[in-house]
Structures are given as structure tokens and as C-alpha cells.
Design a protein around this nucleic acid. Structure first.
Lengths: 263, 263
DNA sequence: ACGCCTTGCCTACAACGTAGACTGTACGTG
DNA sequence: CACGTACAGTCTACGTTGTAGGCAAGGCGT
């Protein structure tokens, strides 16, 4: 759809009142964010401009400012839309199993929206916790995973402080793995494997001998397997170091009152 | 220095030939990138525009295109300048110790240039391996850490494929940890601790009960400690799972010919 | 019927990245 | 000393961006 105003299959709307409303689904923040996400998925982050998004919605660019006060807010919104797709069940049957599964869910999500990943890992960074526009509790959705995983872990018997440690190690590795994996192929994996091999082959052999020798190994990369292995190591290590007060098969009662909250 | 053209301590250069050259240190890619980095460090990524950087160098913005063909290239350059500061000794006395130390070096580097971190973790992602402008071997510097760590690990006796696994888990966690840590305080840690507490206090208690209860624990965060713990777990686990063919105290000979390189 | 409030459009502006032509200085060669 | 070539640096200009502010028109309570 190059120029939507001259799109032949629109009926040219002679009566702009009712026709227009039927054709354009009555904007809402959700609609805006969703189509913004679609645009980013299709054409990358830089393609997302207010004007372009406005064109996509067949609406004046300025109208978008009703639903996102900023371009930055729009990006935050996209981040949230994506993150909301990640449901983390908190009935802690087995926390390790649970975390393992959500790790893969997260990975799938990231691979489904590779262009959004920079936002996922970066957006909360550019507007740190304390400084968020708390009046609108919009960007708080970024904290959802944190809250959910804390809930899961504490429900599984961890002391709150320990739960935090587990979360940090877990999510840290998760983020890092995703970033690493996405570096291997971004555009499309089919033809990129060839390109990668080609690229490595052209590497200056003198300064990157190890890398060059590794082209074949680099070419076939099992992201899921790699993630699984890393998570296993991490979770195993964590469990050995600081274990939940209750055994892991304990159902989700709440055996923790609160940490010592002096000061 | 608000307006450098009217800076009183410059001598107004009546003879523009020799004076100007003395005042402006004869641009070079390195100079450009360095002051660009300084600008980013001081005012954040968005403050870096060609025009602004030109003003900083008291030069026409267009002149910069001699040293960076793009704004993107400029960002790549900054990434590289920062990454070059990270020296990874490859004399593998003890690979675990070595990796642990470089992890902290990397952390220090990231904390010294927090605004660049999004570039560090993201830039290679937006221009994937195979598609780099290989004619100029500029952005290859991003691969330096990979090459170095591979060298270190293989030198310590790992099979190349295993070295890759170690690298991925290690750098994955490292990246993730940095991102996590930077989310806690970005602008300045002094007053942000208060802000964070304040922010959490204002969190909707209903939907974020765990987080709210954790404000005090969140407030004092030992990044180095957390990193150390995570790395220990990871490296320990990795060592247990796939150990180098030679004991770790072996000096850096090269006991590996190459992997099977059929195909 | 009235007036308000939401929704959307339009114009306008400063700042951006960058193409292309231009000017000056430096220097190897006659 | 004169010249031409190369290159550092500048100037102008164009299209695009984010966004402020004002204005038109429909939905709805009174």
C-alpha cells in the first residue's frame, strides 16, 4: 500500500461522516500501539515515525498525540504491548521448570519481534525507575515480569531478598542470551547463513584467526539449546547456593511474612 | 561552554592561518569519535547530532562526513572506541580468574559510559555480521572481544566449539547483568536512591505487592557483588560440564589444531 | 435548543541527516 | 617561482522529522 489516499479499493467516501468511521476502527491507544508494533515488526524501528504511523492508520499524524504523548511514549507503549504477551504463571509447582519455560517463551517472543528487542532491553534504561511519569502509570508494565517472577519465587519458598537475586541472575542471562542470539542472524535466517559464512571468510585472517577458523561452528547455532544449557547451569547453581525454605514441590501458599524491614 | 565562538580566552585569531590550526587540532577520525563520545557521556545519545558535534568541534557539520560516512557509522565508531578500552589479556594463566576480571573491567567500562551501553549491546545487532561494510573494516572492532575471549579459552585448553559455548554464556550473562544494573540508577546514584524509594512507594500496591514490599532491599544494590556471584555460578557450572583438555594452570601453548572443517 | 468535550485535521516551525557545489590551503613537480 | 592536483573545510539547499497551537465537527448531558 504505497499511497493509501489513492487506494482504489476504498470507496472514496462521499459522505465522510459514517463511512469514515466504519472504515477506520475508531482509534484507541491499543489500536495505535498495535499497528505501531506491526509497522516496527515489518520495517524496523526507524520506519516508525509519527507521520508514517499516521499514514498507516489513515489519520492525521497529529491525532496520535492523543494516545501517546510522545514518540518516546509510543516506544514505551510498544515495549509494553510486547511484554504483556508474556504471561508468567505464578502457581509455583516447580520454580525451575517454570522459569525454564518462561525463558523459552521470552525467547520466542523476542524472535517474533526482533526489532523490538532493543527497546525491551533498553527502554526502561533510558527512563529509570524513579523518574517515570507516575501520574500516568503507563510505563509500569515494564515491571510486570519482575513482579511476576518475584511472586513465583517467593511463592516457591524463597526469601524475598533471595528471590531478587535469582531474578537478577535469571533475567540478566536471559536478556544477554537474546541479544547474543539476535546478533547471529537478524534479517532472515535462510540466506543469512550463507552471508555469515561469506562474511567470516572475508575477515582479516591475521587479526581474527580464531573467528575465522570457527565459521562452520558459528554457522549452525542452536539458540534454544544454548539458552537451555545456560539456564540449567544458572538455576542449578542458584538452587545449590540459596535454596527455598520449602521444597520446590510445595504448592503456592505464602510462607513468607516479609523481610526484616528496619530502616 | 555555551557558545564557543565568543569564548573570551581564545585570542580572536586575527591571522586565521596558523592560529586556527593551533586552536583546532586538525580533525581526524579519532578526534571526532572521541569528542563524540565525550558529548554522549555528558548529555546522552540524543544530544549527539551532526550539527551539535560540529559545533563542539567548531567546524562545519558537513566536515564530519569525511571521518564518518553516516551518523550510524559515527555511532559504530563510538562503540568501537569504548570497546577498544577493554583489553583482554590472553595469556591464559587461569581462564576463570581472567574472565572474572574482565567481567569487572567491562562493568567498570559500562558504568563509566552508561549512555553508550545501549549502543554496545545493540549496535552489532542492527548491522548483523554478514552484512557489514567489509570494504572498510571499521565495525569489525566489535568482534574484538569475541576473538580475544576465544583465544583465551582455546589457549586454556578448551575445544573451539566449547570455547564458543563458554563465551556465549559468559558474555550473555555479562550483557544482561549490565543492562539490569543500569536500570537501577542511571542519572546519578546519589539522589536516585531516594527517588527510587519514592517511586516504589508510589507504585500501585494492589498490582505490585512484591515490588512494593521490597523497596528497602532494592535500594541498596551491590552491582559488583551480584555480578561476581552470577559469574561464579556460571563459570563453575560451565567448567563442571565441559572442561578444558588441559588443566587450567597450563600456560598459553596452542594444543588445538582446528575443528573438523569438512564442508 | 444549547453548550461542552472529545476527536481529529491543518498549518507552522525548529532541528535533523545529508547531497552537491564551492573555496581555500598544502604540496609535489615543472 | 609558477602551476596543478588533492584534499580539508564551508555553504547552500532539500526533504523529513517531532511537535506546539489553533480550529472544525460530531456525541452527549442538560
Amino acid at each position: 500500500m504505497p499511497s493509501p489516499t489513492t487506494d482504489p479499493n476504498t470507496v472514496e467516501d462521499p459522505t465522510p461522516t459514517s463511512r469514515t468511521k466504519a472504515r477506520r476502527p475508531r482509534l484507541s491507544r491499543e489500536v495505535v500501539l498495535t499497528t505501531a508494533l506491526a509497522l516496527v515488526d515489518a520495517e524496523g524501528l526507524e520506519a516508525l515515525s509519527m507521520r508514517r504511523l499516521g499514514a498507516e492508520l489513515e489519520r492525521d499524524p497529529m491525532g496520535l498525540y492523543r494516545y501517546a504523548k510522545n514518540r518516546a511514549d509510543l516506544l514505551d507503549g510498544i515495549t509494553e504491548v510486547v511484554l504483556e504477551k508474556l504471561v508468567i504463571p505464578t502457581d509455583g509447582v516447580d520454580w525451575q521448570q517454570q522459569l525454564r519455560r518462561t525463558a523459552h517463551d521470552f525467547r520466542d517472543l523476542a524472535l517474533a519481534h526482533p526489532h523490538v528487542v532493543p527497546l525491551l532491553v533498553t527502554r526502561p534504561l533510558s527512563t529509570p525507575l524513579g523518574l517515570r511519569p507516575l501520574g500516568t502509570l503507563r510505563p509500569l508494565g515494564t515491571l510486570r515480569p519482575l513482579e511476576n517472577i518475584l511472586d513465583l519465587l517467593i511463592g516457591a519458598g524463597f526469601a524475598p531478598a533471595d528471590a531478587l537475586h535469582v531474578y537478577r541472575a535469571y533475567y540478566g542471562y536471559l536478556y544477554g542470551h537474546i541479544l547474543n542470539e539476535l546478533q547471529e542472524f537478524v534479517v532472515d535466517e535462510e540466506e543469512n547463513e550463507a552471508l555469515l559464512r561469506l562474511g567470516l571468510h572475508r575477515l582479516p585472517a591475521r587479526s581474527f584467526p580464531r573467528l575465522r577458523a570457527m565459521a562452520p561452528v558459528l554457522a549452525d547455532y542452536d539458540g534454544a539449546g544454548e539458552l537451555e544449557a545456560g539456564i540449567t547451569i544458572l538455576l542449578g547453581g542458584l538452587a545449590a547456593q540459596l535454596n527455598p525454605t520449602a521444597p520446590r514441590t510445595l504448592p503456592g501458599s505464602m510462607p513468607d511474612p516479609a523481610p526484616q524491614e528496619s530502616s
